[in-house]
């Protein structure tokens, strides 16, 4: 079961109750599932970083403000996309937020369609991230199936070496290498070397042999 099967939600954080209510209503009417919190602290305590969804947050909040929230989330390794909606924004603030990875920076009073568009974008981003993560996880799992030798072969194949070269490098027969290669392809469920490369590029290499320079 993949995490992507859960319905994506919008996580709303704003200290003003009226705003929370209104935005919740608007987003719900658009068909999103909304959960809201009064403060960044409450959100951080309760939310599950793995659940799908994006974050809509105010910037000017007492205690931990929006930008601080953004920083904390990224420090904790959560890369949930954020849409900022704020009543007192300034250009420097918005630039900071975007550069730190926010999807959008909207000012109050916010039109619903603007918000919805940003939310959709954020949710899409979130999906992509999840997808990529899931993918990565899959590749990681497959990689674990490999033996050490197979791993070595994988690394070299991905580096673009011919079998003969691999055999020479590893000190094994070419035939053996071929066998390894076949097993790797099978375990990795790659249909071609290109796919293999794609897979491995999604995962941080243990040690990348120097790429073949022809």
């Amino acid at each position: 079961m993949s995490a992507t099967d859960e319905k994506p939600s919008v996580f709303l954080v704003d200290d003003d109750p009226g705003v929370r209510t209104a935005l919740t209503r608007g987003l719900t009417a658009e068909g999103f599932g909304v959960r809201s919190w009064e403060s960044a602290d409450a959100f951080l305590r309760e939310h599950e970083p793995d659940s799908p969804g994006c974050l809509v947050a105010d910037v000017a909040m007492p205690g931990v403000d929006g930008l601080e929230l953004q920083t904390r989330l990224s420090l904790s390794g959560c890369d949930r996309p954020i849409v900022f909606v704020t009543g007192r924004g300034s250009i420097p603030m918005s630039v900071r937020a975007i550069r730190a990875g926010a999807v959008n920076f909207l000012s109050k009073p916010v039109r619903l369609e603007e918000l919805v568009a940003a939310v959709r974008e954020a949710l899409e981003q979130d999906r992509l991230i999840r997808f990529a993560r899931a993918r990565r996880a899959l590749v990681q799992a497959r990689l674990k199936l490999l033996t050490a030798r197979e791993r070595e072969v994988l690394d070299l194949v991905v580096a673009g070496r011919m079998n003969k070269q691999i055999a020479a490098e590893l000190g094994a027969a070419e035939k053996t290498i071929k066998v390894h290669r076949g097993r790797v392809m099978l375990k990795m469920q790659a249909r071609s070397v290109a796919e293999l490369v794609t897979f491995t590029s999604q995962v941080a290499p243990r040690h990348a042999p120097a790429p073949t320079v022809e």
């Binding site: 705003v19 209503r25 608007g26 009417a29 007192r88 916010v110």
Partner: peptide, 25 residues
């Protein structure tokens, strides 16, 4: 002034959001 703007913005946001939600409904 900034503070006032913000203070006004909150209810305005609320009103707008509520109104658009109602329209949608």
């Amino acid at each position: 002034s900034g503070a006032f703007a913000h203070e006004l913005n909150q209810p305005l946001t609320s009103i707008l959001g509520n109104a658009e939600a109602a329209l949608k409904m």
